[in-house]
């Protein structure tokens, strides 16, 4: 028997939903914005960036709502002496909740900004717009304009006014009916569907994920490159969960628990499959600019897609995680015994 005879391929798919937000609500987040006399807007928060990019996407949402250049929006987080309350970064809630709070604060600050600019330009605030490049212009009259920094200076030194805004977002807390389970456990739903292709070595039990092709629907993307980062990073975590990772290899027994990265197996760059994804954007009804959220869900679809592909390749029905070589070989033995 040739070496390649032991390798079989299979394809599997899975499709999932993922809810945004701390499930039962009651998880407020606040944002404060003020214009300094430097021409910058400072957004004060107590929210955290885990690497997913909160500091970036919040600055984008702030800049979009204010109508000012991205570079002039400064994120000041996270300090409980300067930042207002945020429930935290978890439950795919940060972009949705904090983003909504920032939009609210930015709208209030923008109104204050336009009021001062209106005085300076001798126009009605309703006739003004921000050009996104740091100027406030009279609609349709491009040469009647004032820069944001001059407006901020005028507000402070001439009018004695602040340019600031307050924002909060809270989904009221939902109670669960203990008898029926009736509840309101989310704010919106994101979706994913993954097609996995695997190759299983029936001699060694080793599984190689050949490809993962996924569609994601995450509402409006704030920063597609960061969304892609979540999708790819989550996919590799999904491969790890599907094939290698556990803190208790003999669960429920607790012995031989890994204490280091030599024993806790995770996929490395050599385990990367061919990966392709498309992102659909159906704006949510309640997220900032229609955001849904993508932080948590990206491992969830690859895991079952990979295991379904293994079962498809082998003609078995493995039902446990992780699918280690031992699990594969036992499933094959069982199949042989039944034949």
């Amino acid at each position: 028997m040739g070496v390649n005879m032991t390798k079989v391929r299979g394809q599997g798919m899975a499709a999932i939903n993922y809810p945004t937000g701390m499930n039962l609500g009651g998880d407020p987040s606040q944002a404060l914005i003020h214009a300094s006399t430097t021409g910058n807007f400072i957004i004060s928060l107590s929210s955290t960036d885990l690497g997913q990019g909160l500091k970036t996407v919040i600055a984008q949402i702030g800049a979009e709502t204010l109508g000012v250049p991205f570079d002039t929006v400064i994120i000041d987080t996270a300090d409980t002496d300067t930042g207002p309350h945020c429930m935290g970064t978890f439950a795919s809630r940060a972009t949705h909740r904090v983003g909504n709070a920032v939009m609210m604060a930015a709208n209030e600050a923008k109104k204050a900004l336009l009021d001062v600019a209106a005085d300076e330009l001798e126009a009605s605030p309703d006739d003004l717009e921000l050009d996104g490049n740091g100027s406030i212009v009279v609609k349709g009259v491009p040469d009647r304009s004032i820069s944001v920094i001059d407006t901020a200076l005028a507000a402070h030194f001439k009018h004695g006014k602040t340019i600031a805004g307050r924002g909060i977002y809270m989904k009221p807390k939902s109670k669960v009916d203990p008898l029926t389970g009736e509840m309101d456990p989310d704010s919106t739903e994101a979706h994913a569907c993954t097609v996995a292709e695997v190759e299983v070595d029936t001699e060694t039990g080793e599984v190689k994920v050949l490809s993962l092709k996924s569609a994601y629907e995450v509402g409006q993307q704030v920063n597609p490159a960061l969304v892609e980062g979540q999708i790819v990073g989550g996919a590799l975590m999904g491969i790890g969960h599907a094939l290698y990772e556990t803190t208790n290899p003999y669960y429920p027994a607790i012995d031989h628990g890994p204490l280091n990265f030599s024993d806790y197996l995770m996929p490395g760059p050599a385990e990367l499959p061919e990966m392709e994804s498309v992102v659909l954007e159906f704006p949510s009804s309640n997220g900032p600019y229609g955001v849904k959220g993508v932080g948590e869900m990206t491992a969830n679809c690859p895991i079952p897609a990979i295991v379904n592909a293994i079962n498809n390749a082998l003609g078995v029905r493995i039902t446990t995680l992780p699918v280690t070589p031992e699990v594969v070989l036992r499933a094959l033995e069982e199949k042989a015994a039944q034949a």
Partner: peptide, 20 residues
């Protein structure tokens, strides 16, 4: 060769694709 060179450096976030 890139994959081999970075194999001793663990990244839990990116999935390595962007790094490569």
């Amino acid at each position: 060769e890139i994959v081999e060179a970075i194999s001793g450096n663990i990244c839990r976030c990116t999935g390595y694709t962007a790094i490569i």
